[in-house]
Simulated assay, not measured.
Amino acid sequence: MFRVRDATPDDASACAAIYAPYVAGTTVSFEEEPPGPEEMAHRIAASQAEHAWLVAEDADGVLGYAYAGTFRSRAAYRHTCEVSVYVDADRRGRGVGRALYTALLDRMTGLGMRLAVGGATMPNEASERLHRALGFEVVGTFRDVGFKQDRWCDVRWFQKRLV
């Protein structure tokens, strides 16, 4: 059993550890150097200032996290947020990502967001399944938009109306 709660600065190390394998060993993230705990604490604080950063935890610790941020800086986009979720590789497939995203989307709705968007590097069947299961629709694919691990990568974009 796990619970979802707001992240605190004390969660920065666990979030950094969950994220590092995605950065170092996959094209899921386009970052090329995993951020450390100090940078992750900064990201948690920045996300919570206007949106939210949530973690799922059980008795053994943090299982994953989800956050929302600004989609674009122009004022007209202020009711749209970009969302992401990362789950520890050993804990995937147990409903953690779904629980995190559901709680995050509920929070964003409560904050007055009208639309949530998320991007996923392709191929990524797990992310695609999660987005579709939660009511996101595919709105397009940017072809060859990122270069990582010696190859060009596509990013598929999803959106979900919140209100």
Rank of each mutant, 00 (worst) to 15 (best):
30 F>K: 09
149 Q>N: 08
51 H>V: 01
22 Y>H: 11
144 D>N: 04
82 E>S: 08
110 G>I: 06
119 G>I: 14
128 E>A: 00
99 A>Y: 04
25 G>Q: 15
41 A>C: 13
123 P>S: 05
87 V>L: 07
108 M>G: 08
133 A>H: 00
16 A>H: 12
13 S>Y: 05
156 R>V: 13
131 H>T: 00
44 I>V: 14
73 S>L: 07
134 L>A: 00
69 G>H: 03
113 M>K: 12
113 M>N: 06
124 N>T: 07
94 R>M: 14
72 R>A: 01
119 G>R: 01
44 I>S: 07
40 M>Q: 09
15 C>E: 08
49 A>L: 10
24 A>K: 10
10 D>L: 14
55 V>W: 00
105 L>S: 00
155 V>C: 02
20 A>H: 11
74 R>N: 08
42 H>K: 15
122 M>G: 05
78 R>Y: 13
13 S>W: 08
76 A>E: 10
107 R>Y: 02
55 V>D: 04
36 G>A: 15
117 V>S: 15
71 F>E: 05
38 E>H: 09
114 R>Q: 14
20 A>N: 11
120 A>M: 08
129 R>M: 07
68 A>D: 01
94 R>G: 10
148 K>Y: 08
17 A>M: 13
37 P>F: 08
120 A>H: 04
96 V>H: 03
114 R>E: 10
97 G>M: 04
105 L>W: 00
12 A>Q: 12
143 R>S: 06
123 P>K: 06
80 T>R: 15
130 L>Q: 02
19 Y>K: 08
16 A>R: 11
147 F>T: 13
85 V>M: 05
111 L>K: 14
84 S>K: 03
154 D>P: 05
44 I>H: 08
24 A>Y: 12
107 R>L: 02
134 L>W: 04
42 H>E: 13
44 I>E: 14
102 T>S: 03
40 M>N: 12
155 V>T: 07
71 F>M: 02
20 A>Y: 13
104 L>G: 01
82 E>K: 12
126 A>P: 05
39 E>F: 09
64 G>K: 00
152 W>Y: 04
30 F>L: 10
52 A>T: 00
54 L>Y: 00
138 V>I: 07
157 W>S: 03
19 Y>I: 12
30 F>G: 11
60 D>W: 05
124 N>V: 07
40 M>R: 09
45 A>P: 03
130 L>E: 02
104 L>P: 01
34 P>Y: 11
158 F>N: 07
60 D>V: 00
36 G>L: 13
41 A>Q: 13
115 L>N: 14
158 F>C: 12
116 A>F: 03
40 M>K: 11
76 A>P: 15
36 G>V: 13
78 R>E: 15
89 A>Y: 06
81 C>T: 15
106 D>N: 06
74 R>Y: 09
38 E>R: 04
18 I>G: 15
14 A>K: 11
39 E>A: 11
133 A>P: 00
